[in-house]
Design a protein around this nucleic acid. Structure first.
Length: 647
DNA sequence: AATTCTGTCCTC
DNA sequence: CTAAGAGGACAGAATT
């Protein structure tokens, strides 16, 4: 790599003003330092609490290392921004810092981290610059130098730091040439195009954050805390009054006898011990270990109707309050940004399916109750909240081309779940959908749950489990569903076969996104192993079939689910891209902001007089994005103007 | 003492 | 012939 080192160090404005770059692809990287001393760890990464010290620009043949403490790169950045494609690793970082410090939004980007992730989707790879450089180019990137910028203050750069800066320009170019080949080979050009645009959406969202009302949040937290405490006391009282001596002890001192229950009710293990002592405790297959184990799972405990039913129901209520005081309690206030007073989440752009995720904090699993009332429109602003109506169901209808589903949507027949119910249950066949909804809510509920489970590749047992009905009944509903929608059954078996025929799951034909299966081609090996196995004793069972079918069925289920979930993800991404384009085109970036994405939902904040406009545009962009993928039945979205987050 | 694993819950 | 959509946060337990 050193053969590419050819850098100019710039610490005078005149030198910077003379820089001429004519290349189309220009590398960009940024080193930042603490701006304050009081915000601890976040400084360095967060644009508000850190500041640029070094800005590196350039190409494989020449690198400009700019001391950002001494010169202002704004003019050069603005000039280049009009004509170049910026190259870098994790450009969302540069995007946010350049926006904050120089008011520059990177326009055309090529992010080697995201392109790498797109080309290795599903494979759980290390996408850090060091990881990718090692894998793609067999280059070792030193990382301890980066940390040295954190506390550099006004000290001059040493040679090591400057060369490190130049290498951070060179390495992404070397990676890029490998990735371009991969993208071509994997036919992922369209996915890359979408994700490069979407990166900027996430940059804007993370930078802006969501307005938040701590007072409202605290009220909710306090209410839940009271509930938590009182339920905990009730549980303790039960143990003492039942005289289950094994689970409490009297602590004697001179003046009083305090009774202490030894069960920590927040510990599932301890509760399991107690429930077993009482003579009941359900068992279920663990989601993580996939083994049968004792559990205090809500669904399992709800099935219990024995003599301790009262206790169990108090415990279930307690558990509900538990998460409300932990994850969604006072602790959550730590996420309020010390400078903006808002909540800024980090998003992961490429998941296995193509969806995104949110963390620190996760803004995609805030309870859809009064917790969301704390996410407010600030004074003078409104929120525009929009979501797709039946996004995944409509995607499935378009993908499967099932004629009954299409008929339903094309004719706008009304309530979907009633329609499914009337298809599944013979006795409802002659009734109108309104009648089904009105008088057969149980069957409608079954149909709803069945549709949900089946969309995700579930079978009879899944339905049975979700609804608490017998497996036989679940199986009956399952087969009735496919009998009612024969096109769906055909599509599903095709999707299963397809998943087994290639080393990846093909998500959609617009982006051609792919999700590689980690264990492939292990599945073939497993099959051979099972087929070639010879019993050493008569009647011995072949243990390899189990491993084979386990993997095969997982692959098949993913083959059903990923295309639906992943296409949905791409559609929402595209909608957000269109909306961002619109508001930048109109010069509204200071009036309207995207604030959060929750899979089929887009949230924006808007100045009051633009609210109606923003709502309309949001709906338009979401529909337009839907039209790109959903060609038979359109995918529509509904937005509303609200004072706090509501969905 | 610090890190990793497991169980459980919330979202779509 | 099995296990059953995608994620992240937290508490407690296990492991180092």
């Amino acid at each position: 790599m050193n053969e590419y080192l050819n850098y100019v160090f710039i610490e005078k404005q005149e030198e910077l003003d003379q820089v001429q770059i004519t290349d189309l692809y220009v590398g960009i990287d940024l080193e930042t330092t603490r701006k304050y001393e009081k915000y601890g760890e976040m400084e360095g990464l967060d644009p508000y609490t850190s500041k640029p010290v070094m800005i590196q620009l350039g190409t494989l043949s020449k690198q400009y290392i700019i001391d950002a403490r001494k010169v202002d790169p704004k003019a050069l950045l603005k000039k280049l921004n009009k004509k170049v494609i910026w190259v870098g690793h994790n450009l969302k970082f540069e995007y946010k810092h350049l926006l904050h410090n120089y008011g520059v939004r990177l326009e055309r980007v090529y992010d080697t981290m995201i392109v790498y992730q797109i080309n290795h989707c599903g494979l759980d790879k290390n996408a850090s610059l060091a990881g990718v450089a090692k894998e793609c180019c067999d280059i070792i990137v030193p990382k301890d130098v980066r940390l040295s910028f954190l506390s550099i203050r006004d000290l001059p750069f040493i040679k090591e730091q400057i060369e490190y800066g130049a290498k951070d320009i060179i390495v992404p170019f070397l990676i890029k040439s490998k990735l371009d080949y991969l993208t071509e080979k994997n036919d992922l050009g369209e996915t890359v195009k979408l994700e490069m645009e979407f990166l900027k959406v996430l940059g804007d969202i993370e930078y802006k954050g969501m307005a938040f009302d701590p007072k409202r949040w605290k009220e909710v937290a306090a209410k839940n805390q009271v509930k938590f405490n009182s339920l905990q006391q009730k549980l303790n009282r039960f143990v003492i009054e039942s005289d289950h001596v094994k689970f409490f002890k009297k602590q004697m001192d001179l003046f009083s006898a305090e009774i202490k229950v030894s069960i920590s009710w927040t510990s599932s293990r301890q509760v399991i011990k107690y429930f077993k002592y009482l003579g009941f405790c359900p068992q279920a297959v663990s989601k993580t270990t996939k083994k049968l184990a004792y559990t205090v799972d809500k669904k399992e405990l709800s099935k219990y109707h024995g003599q301790y039913k009262e206790l169990v129901s108090i415990y279930l209520e307690f558990k509900e309050a538990e998460q409300a005081v932990t994850t969604f309690g006072e602790d959550f206030l730590k996420y309020i940004h010390p400078i903006t007073g808002r909540i800024h989440s980090d998003y992961r752009q490429i998941l296995n399916t193509g969806r995104i995720s949110s963390n620190n904090p996760n803004l995609q699993n805030i309870p859809a109750d009064d917790h969301r009332e704390a996410f407010i429109a600030p004074k003078g602003f409104k929120l525009a909240n929009a979501d797709y109506s039946g996004q995944e169901q409509i995607i499935l209808a378009n993908k499967s081309k099932d004629k009954d589903l299409l008929f339903f949507y094309k004719n706008g027949l009304g309530d979907m779940h009633s329609f499914v119910a009337s298809k599944i249950f013979e006795e409802l066949k002659e009734l109108s959908l309104a009648e089904v909804k009105e008088n057969h809510s149980e069957e409608r509920q079954t149909a709803k749950a069945a549709g949900f489970a089946i969309n995700y590749g579930g079978v009879g047992k899944t339905i049975a489990n979700n609804l608490g009905i017998s497996i036989e009944e679940g199986d009956r509903v399952y087969s009735a569903y496919f009998k009612a929608f024969p096109g769906l059954g055909k599509y599903f078996s095709k999707a299963k076969k397809l998943a087994l025929s290639q080393p990846y799951i093909f998500i959609d034909s617009v982006t051609k996104r792919k999700s590689w299966f980690k264990k492939y081609p292990l599945i073939e090996e497993l099959k051979n192993k099972a087929a070639n196995w010879v019993a050493s004793v008569e009647d011995e069972k072949n243990p390899h079939w189990s491993a084979y079918f386990k993997l095969k069925s997982k692959l098949e289920r993913n083959g059903l689910n990923y295309p639906i979930q992943g296409e949905a993800g791409s559609i929402t991404k595209k909608a957000a891209v269109l909306f961002r384009e619109w508001l930048l085109m109109e010069g509204l970036e200071d009036d309207i902001y995207l604030t959060n994405l929750v899979h089929d939902e887009i949230n924006a904040e808007t100045v009051e007089d633009m609210a109606i406009n923003a709502k309309g545009e949001l709906e338009r962009c979401m529909k337009e994005a839907g039209d790109i993928w959903c060609k038979i039945v359109p995918l529509n979205a509904e937005a509303k103007i609200v004072n706090y987050w509501s969905h």
